[in-house]
Design a protein around this nucleic acid. Structure first.
Length: 558
RNA sequence: UGGGAGGUCGUCUAACGGUAAGACUGCGGACUCUGGAUCCGCCUAUCGGGGUUCGAAUCCCUGCCUCCCAGCCA
């Protein structure tokens, strides 16, 4: 595998190493990736996937893909399907085994009965408002529910009738009897079951009571024999409850370990806010290339390898930080550089005529498909008298350090000849440059040992050029932290109005049969991916990421 | 102001009582038929104050700052 990992180790791996050394689980390592199917996976999940599946692979264990589908009001089959596709695409090896918390609803119910019988769970008739009122505050203890001391028999009866659908939504809950005075609010008699007469995407109307996350998660981990249950920092407060349930039940007890979730500059990672962007039509669906969903990144042209390398090199800790977007781009470029086929495309065309090149003549020039990969071979590119070049590659009055085309200057046409700029034609009305006239030097054809020039530019022969529609994506937000918002406003105030520009471009003929999803480097411009909707009749490309551009950087400084 | 968790280059992460290291970014340079890639070099950090120790990022005390928690969400 091409994955690179320069990181030494991290605290979770250390824990596993210690457990293996002490024989805690007999050397067994079993992790899980437990998404809730209430939205699409994003790059933050990529970190978790890489971690969980990576650890399992490293230690010869398994990692379960398990849907945490305990809330039928928010979850949908569409999300289940997209998540499976994304995990598979990223390379998570779940061996075709897909688990669902909903598969354990009966076991969870039976265990709840066990806790009732133990006297540590009770049916509470308080409304949600009343529960909130009696929960206390951060600094004050809560008050016991008046229903806290119901008899086991009454609890059993009521709980069975909750399940049977005798009571309306919200009228009762099953709560664990822990400690209403605990400084940890999660321990103040947490709700285990709520009544929800809602259609579940898998169990239909079989159930009208649904387990809460805390009651479900650890028990599911236990059932599956998970050894290390890795989750994000905000669940640290839940660990005592996680442990409490397992201890009350006396079942196999996995270890919950928390790590820092991924944050990226210029990016929103909250599913809720991504949903908002999608629903308000600010972006074009869950796979819009401007949002950090895995499907969006895939559509944009990010490779699974690049994403994995990024995730693996992030490091794992408990520090709440924000990773620079540039780091992601580095790993994406690194992978694309060694895998993407090169091709010549002109995004902002300017006509160039070689005045001393025979009219009507076309010759084929040999071009390298990927200088980083000798096995990628070569291709033939047609060359003729009239070409398209990039507007940026000509200046009537060159700035200092500009090595491209300007009157009197020579450049090389990539894989072609050295040409010399004679003059530029302008539209007399607007002063806009319409055409460049150059002469070529027939003795400088590519492959021959000739004189050197400072610059090489790309081009496309006009007669054989094929049209392309290219989407140039920029950051969706104008600030590093879109969540940092002035009073009374929301993150949408930071939306970049110019995050998408579509240009009609010209490409060499070889691009005509580009398959949707295939990734290319447009030489000197960046990496581009044929959109999923691209066809031979209408070629549509998305810009994945620009090439590093030291010239642009120099320009910006002056 | 209760509880939990954190503070090391600009960013992310190492160093587990013994020379503060790497990656990204930035800045220089070499090379180049992609101003790409590659190569070389440079910059900048232990939250503050005490203590223990021959020696502290690491141990102790103390102060400060940040994040998370009052869903019948996960």
């Amino acid at each position: 595998m091409n994955d690179t990992d320069s990181r030494p180790s991290h605290f979770i791996r250390d824990i596993i190493l210690e457990d293996n050394a002490s024989g805690k689980h007999g050397g067994r390592v079993h992790t899980r990736f437990p998404p809730e199917p209430n939205g699409y996976l994003h790059v933050g999940h990529a970190k978790s996937i890489t971690l969980n599946f990576g650890l399992a692979e490293e230690f010869g264990g398994k990692c379960n893909l398990r849907f945490d589908d305990t809330n039928p009001t928010k979850e949908e089959t569409e999300y289940v399907e997209s998540i499976i596709e994304d995990v598979r695409w990223l390379g998570g090896d779940f061996g075709g085994r897909v688990f669902y918390a909903s598969d354990y609803f009966q076991q969870l119910y039976d265990w709840a009965v066990v806790l009732i019988n133990k006297g540590v769970a009770y049916v509470c008739d308080l409304s949600s408002d009343q529960v909130r009122e009696t929960r206390g505050t951060l600094t004050e203890p809560g008050k016991n529910s008046p229903y806290r001391d119901r008899s086991v028999e009454e609890n059993l009866d009521l709980f069975a009738r909750m399940k049977a659908g005798e009571f309306p939504d919200g009228s009762r809950t099953l709560r664990a009897k822990v400690d209403m005075a605990s400084p940890n609010l999660n321990m103040r008699d947490p709700v285990m079951y709520r009544i929800l007469h809602a259609e579940h995407h898998r169990t239909g109307d079989q159930w009208c009571i649904y387990p809460m996350y805390d009651w479900a998660h650890g028990q599911c981990d236990s059932i599956e024999g998970i050894t290390h249950s890795i989750c994000t920092l905000e669940f640290e407060d839940h660990r005592p409850l996680y442990d409490w349930y397992l201890d009350q039940l006396g079942v196999f007890h996995p270890q919950q370990i928390e790590f820092d979730r991924l944050n990226l500059t210029y990016t929103l990672m909250s599913k809720r806010k991504l949903l908002q962007l999608v629903q308000q039509g600010i972006v074009d669906g869950w796979d819009d290339p401007r949002i950090p969903t895995l499907s969006g990144m895939r559509r944009r042209g990010y490779s699974p390898e690049g994403l994995r390398n990024f995730a693996r090199n992030l490091g794992v800790s408990k520090t709440n930080g924000i990773t620079e977007f540039e780091k992601l781009e580095y790993y994406v470029r690194e992978d694309l550089n060694r895998t993407a086929l090169r091709v010549m495309t002109v995004l902002r065309p300017l006509k160039l005529v070689l005045t001393n090149y025979p009219e009507g003549q076309t010759e084929m020039l040999e071009a390298v498909n990927n200088p980083e990969d000798a096995n990628a071979g070569t291709r033939q590119v047609p060359f003729s008298r009239e070409l398209w070049i990039e507007q940026d590659d000509f200046r009537e009055e060159p700035p200092k350090g500009y090595h491209r085309l300007y009157p009197g200057n020579e450049v090389r046409l990539r894989y072609g000849y050295i040409i010399k700029c004679q003059n530029a034609l302008k539209d007399p009305a607007t002063g806009r440059i319409t055409e460049i006239h150059c002469t070529y030097d027939p003795d400088t054809r590519s492959g021959q040992q000739t004189r050197k020039v400072k610059s090489t530019i790309h081009w496309v022969a006009a007669a054989t050029a094929i049209p392309l529609e290219v989407r140039l994506y920029d950051k969706l937000f104008t600030v590093e932290n879109p969540n940092d918002v002035p009073e009374g406003q929301d993150f949408t105030t930071h939306i970049n109005p110019n995050s998408l520009e579509t240009v009609p471009a010209k490409a060499e003929p070889s691009l005509a049969n580009a398959q949707p999803g295939s990734r290319f480097q447009f030489e000197r411009l960046g990496y581009f991916c044929a959109d999923k909707s691209s066809t031979a009749g209408r070629l549509l490309f998305n810009r994945t990421v620009e090439l590093r551009d030291t010239w642009a950087k120099l320009q910006k400084k002056s």
